[in-house]
Write a protein that binds this DNA or RNA. Structure first.
Lengths: 244, 244
DNA sequence: CGTCATCTTGAGCGAGGTCAATGATGGTGG
DNA sequence: CCACCATCATTGACCTCGCTCAAGATGACG
């Protein structure tokens, strides 16, 4: 991702973009993609780079967050916890994704870095003004919010009704779809078993057992701990109980 | 809710609002609340009333919905199903709530009336134009989308990590909060046991057993099938595993 | 007062959680 | 280069919670 920082030409010459945003590797895929040079310049002035080390949090559950961000590099989780420590991962944010809340009230969730991470952060208080001044950004936010609602609905179906094996298979299919890997190629697993369990509403032991079972049945292969290969996609889809 | 239709003055005289919207009992609480008379007039021309009988669907999972709506009267559920018939309720919509999607792709969920229902519906194709012409509506949609995301996050924590008893107690507390009932008063239960089970990711038998257990323990009373009384709010909150 | 839908209760079972021991992996410093 | 340690993953034994199946009870309504 970050190598693009050294890319000399990104269309910048034509628009005379401000330096930092012009060099941003995720800009075109993010909220800032379609906006004018003037709007980008305005953003450039209020945004700043922030680095999170693995495990560090950007937003805490229960706190009123003062920052929103656009992820540049790394992997971030959203999660919610109960007082006794039980934790449910609510989703992941990948580069170019927007994280943060709009409403001025305690956050329903935590935002935590799963790897060392770089984001472009803005004060939350600046959001209303930005949205008002740049309706494009407002519409992009709206469209992304509805995408996320859709995604969470599918996840609620998984959490409410799918068996452990169905959940694990669904997650593998989702990683495969995201990676856009060709058939037979190894798909990277961005999560540990423990993190997969948090995301699926299961325990680490159950995730491990189900992976082993699918490997034993020849549905997948596990060349190492951080990747897998789909050996029988039809079987995996059937196990996942998903429309193909 | 609907009695307000007969209310003679709703600020209408000052603005000369078009007849139908002026008489709308949920307007001020809905997306249409804060907009100008001209904007309202524009909406009035493209919106129309639609009645759903109990069990009838407005939007089907898998179809590209051509309508969005604002609920006037009645109760509506959002739900998602697996091919084999397992179903998870994703949420409820109450009067003044907006239902429908923005994106032009198959809907992730079903929208079905739980009671006889009246909505104001618009062609989905009109939405982008409306949002562009009336930024207030766009911002109201955005704010509601984030509210719904927050609500779904809390529900994902429930589905992923809470026990059956915790789930039932959480739902009762939510009904109590919604109704705004004073302590000791009977809170109406808008759902059957079966519907509560669908919403909580449980079976009807488990819901029934947990309700009976809480009644036996003096935490709640069940004067009839469609209401309950909180007899020990602290205990109910504790059971629900929720911050007070 | 009969009929149908809804709800409750019981008995038994099985998926997944818990607890515990063992095995792999990878980074670090001697 | 390798010994050491921390982290991560696997596997087994056991148990519990919630599901399934089945039978009654209650309530709504003509």
């Amino acid at each position: 991702m970050y190598m693009e920082r050294n890319q000399p030409d990104f269309g910048a010459a034509e628009w005379s973009l401000p330096t930092r945003c012009a060099a941003c590797g995720v800009r075109m895929a993010s909220l800032c993609g379609g906006i004018s040079a003037a709007a980008l310049d305005a953003l450039n002035r209020i945004g700043r780079k922030r680095v999170l080390r693995r495990g560090e949090a950007l937003i805490w559950q229960g706190d009123v967050a003062d920052q929103v961000g656009i992820l540049h590099h790394g992997l971030v989780k959203l999660s919610a916890s109960l007082e006794d420590g039980r934790e449910q991962m609510l989703g992941l944010a990948f580069p170019a994704d927007f994280v943060g809340a709009i409403a001025d009230r305690p956050s329903s969730h935590c935002v935590t870095a799963l790897t060392d991470t770089e984001l472009c952060v803005f004060p939350r208080s600046a959001l209303p003004g930005i949205v008002e001044a740049h309706p494009d950004i407002g519409q992009a936010l709206l469209s992304r919010a509805y995408d996320e609602l859709d995604h969470m609905r599918r996840w609620m179906l998984l959490l409410g009704r799918k068996s452990a094996e169905e959940r694990v298979a669904s997650l593998l299919l989702q990683f495969a779809a995201r990676g856009g890997c060709m058939a037979g190629a190894a798909v990277p697993l961005p999560l540990t078993r423990q993190q997969m369990a948090e995301l699926l509403g299961l325990t680490i032991e159950t995730v491990s057992r189900k992976l082993t079972a699918m490997k034993r049945d020849g549905v997948i292969a596990l060349p190492d701990l951080r990747s897998f290969v789909i050996q029988d996609r039809a079987a995996l889809s059937t196990i996942a109980a998903e429309y193909p």
